[in-house]
């Protein structure tokens, strides 16, 4: 048991290798309870891998280092147990469930399984309950629709920590506004949010940001600071996920 961390989630010397390549490289991070964080970085930086590792997905369990959630190590516990402790994840590309109705999908996650609550969850992401509650969460829905339904399932689950992987991926402008509204609702509920993104628009929703490159956190701080660096250097980066040497020298 670890005690006295300031944040809700702490990563300590966290590393993950695939085929002798370090995808996560000795990460030490704290996430503050009830705040919106962003992990920003170019494609292939390891951002999604970090989210999957925190959630405990099956291919991301062979880590070194530690993950503490509310001062308790969650290194050795399964996804569902992490979820019951209050952690959840929204995928960049949500799963398709053949034949499974939106109602049953939402109900599976909900604390309050009443019809009214399920319908409110759909409304909260800008979807008409009458049009969606009996539809299957399958290939007949667009990626954006499934993404909003997935977010509705998170809203209704009432978790303490949410990992949102590329929340703007496949989303139109109007729907993105709804997703940003949802992030504000989560903030009001004092839910801790970690946005995984390479979008400056999404980054702007956060209060704190971490810049990730090549499996390392190379900078952290205010959104403006990280956005500035990301805009100037990462977007134009030709280092194929190998940061410039001076990046490693940053605090």
């Amino acid at each position: 048991m670890k005690v006295n961390t300031m944040g809700i989630l702490e990563l300590k010397n966290l590393s993950l290798e695939f085929e002798d390549k370090k995808i996560l490289n000795n990460l030490n991070l704290d996430f503050r309870e009830g705040h919106i964080h962003a992990i920003v970085g170019p494609n292939g930086a390891g951002k999604s891998t970090l989210a999957y590792t925190i959630m405990g997905l099956s291919d991301y369990r062979d880590i070194s280092g530690e993950i503490f959630f509310k001062d308790e190590s969650i290194h050795n516990i399964d996804i569902d147990e992490r979820a019951r402790k209050g952690i959840t994840l929204a995928w960049q590309e949500p799963a398709r469930f053949e034949g499974l109705s939106t109602k049953k999908f939402l109900k599976a996650a909900a604390k309050d399984k009443s019809e009214e609550n399920l319908r409110n969850a759909l409304l909260s992401v800008g979807l008409s309950p009458d049009n969606y509650i009996d539809r299957a969460v399958d290939k007949t829905l667009s990626g954006g629709e499934r993404k909003r339904i997935e977010l509705a399932s998170i809203y209704i689950m009432e978790p303490e920590l949410v990992l949102l992987d590329e929340p703007d991926s496949g989303i139109d402008v109007a729907a993105l506004e709804k997703i940003f509204e949802m992030i504000k609702v989560l903030k009001k509920r004092k839910t801790t949010v970690i946005l995984i993104t390479h979008s400056l628009t999404v980054l702007e929703q956060a209060e704190y940001a971490f810049l990730m490159c090549n499996g390392k956190i190379v900078d952290k701080g205010s959104v403006n600071k990280i956005a500035g660096y990301f805009r100037k250097k990462c977007v134009l980066c030709d280092h194929k996920n190998k940061p410039e040497p001076d990046v490693f020298e940053m605090e």
Partner: peptide
């Protein structure tokens, strides 16, 4: 069962058996 479907439901708190049951129920519905 598709691992992403399974892990999505488990990330909402269902245990593996419950998640498999729900996925199969959907497939056969």
């Amino acid at each position: 069962v598709d691992s992403k479907e399974l892990e999505t439901l488990m990330a909402r708190g269902l245990n593996e058996d419950e998640a498999v049951e729900l996925i199969i129920e959907g497939l056969l519905s």
